[in-house]
Nucleic acid binder design. Structure first.
Lengths: 228, 228
DNA sequence: CGCTTTTTTGAGCTGCCTCAAGCGTGGTGG
DNA sequence: CCACCACGCTTGAGGCAGCTCAAAAAAGCG
């Protein structure tokens, strides 16, 4: 999947001047415990961040779409508290951590943007947390699909009310805190009720407003666009 | 409750030079939708941040203990995506948002620290998210109690394996994504099994190691101390 | 000491899980 | 080009964890 990028992204990438790396699906950008990995801008493809528990349970924290910045989140010194893995073929622009620190010291505007970016990530995490903690599962799933659709639309990567959607139901389940069997049932119901179909790698929202309504979806975090 | 503060906190507060405000329990520092509130350093007392759904369901995102910084998280321009409310009597040092922006421009070191702080908050959120999404409820509760205990201990506000604990079971329930009746049952079991008692505003951990074990508690996020 | 808030406990229910088997599909190699 | 394999999806059956509703006991608080 080759992704167009917006002018903001190109600007950010230019600033970074890192090399570009290419990944296969299911590849690891960095793993939990990694002692200080690099930073990335996802150039094309999808990825996600996650944490594991000892017995293999996995929680997906966030899906990364083209243009997203990866690896700023963690403690900037010290090991990563989460891993990042690709979903599809992907390419990412790398730049070194120490370079960041230097950049920040010389460019207050950049540090402001970095703060903005972190704050934005936090907002997504908060929304996700509230969803898992307090939403009914159907709402939860609906919100996730809508969030992804809107994020894709902002990047001009949607066509009408459809967009590419390479995630498996297992991804969804691990993001939503559910069993994948249950996600299948939920999707069936959404399909039968005429809201959504997922087919050959595309998400189709047949009734965007209806889904927004039944999901109690609130795009408070999405109306504000990332600057970087 | 009057709280001692560590030297780091005093330094941070000095830098901010804001006025100090005093709050009663159950008071609002800012509310969801607040168009750009101020920033705070919690000086004494406990508070928490939360989001509400339309039908009244509440998710507690994070508990704030003395010394914690409040309100940096959100989008630094634009309305707050969450509210903050006190649990106990509390006092907080305020400083204005625009002052922050100016400070950042002139002090790269400070912006570095701010980034650190945001990253640390994110780590807490991630841990919380994984807990709610993928942990069994007993583990979840255990982890929350341990997290709070450790955070208190770091502030020298614990005595042995006990610490002040002003939260109600409803607070715990809303943080963990549970019903409060169920929290009561879980706590009874932890008490009967000799792990924990909560009594007259204090948390007593009778078997810290045991609880850490059965909760699969991992203090990866806590071993790194906040610098600000 | 009376009132409010919190905690405890019970009974019954249901939403989501687990386990498991069958099906569809795309990719690979003969 | 076809056969096979692997992986993801679907669907069923049965179980239990955690919910709701409710009411009583206990613990602050003025």
């Amino acid at each position: 999947m080759i992704a167009p990028v917006t002018s903001e992204e190109i600007k950010a990438i230019g600033r970074a001047r890192g090399e570009v790396r290419y990944y296969r699906p299911h590849a690891t950008l960095y793993y939990e415990g990694d002692p200080g990995s690099d930073l990335f801008t996802l150039f094309s493809g999808w990825a996600f961040s996650f944490q594991m528990l000892r017995d293999g349970r996995r929680q997906i924290l966030r899906f990364m779409l083209p243009g997203d910045v990866i690896g700023v989140q963690p403690d900037l010194v010290g090991p990563m508290d989460h891993g990042v893995e690709t979903v599809t073929d992907a390419s990412a622009c790398v730049f070194r951590r120490d370079a960041l620190r230097e950049l920040l010291a010389h460019d207050p505007e950049l540090s402001w943007q970095l703060v903005w970016l972190l704050a934005h990530d936090q907002a997504l995490l908060r929304e996700h947390l509230t969803g898992i903690g307090r939403r009914h599962v159907t709402e939860r799933l609906g919100c996730l699909l809508l969030e992804i659709y809107h994020r894709m639309a902002r990047r001009d990567m949607a066509e009408g009310t459809s967009c590419p959607f390479p995630l498996t139901q297992t991804h969804l389940a691990d993001a939503l805190g559910l069993a994948s069997a249950h996600v299948s049932r939920l999707l069936r119901r959404l399909r039968e009720d005429g809201y959504v179909t997922i087919k050959s790698g595309w998400l189709h929202l047949h009734d965007l407003d209806g889904l927004t309504e039944i999901s109690q979806f609130d795009d408070r975090t999405l109306t504000r666009r990332p600057m970087l």
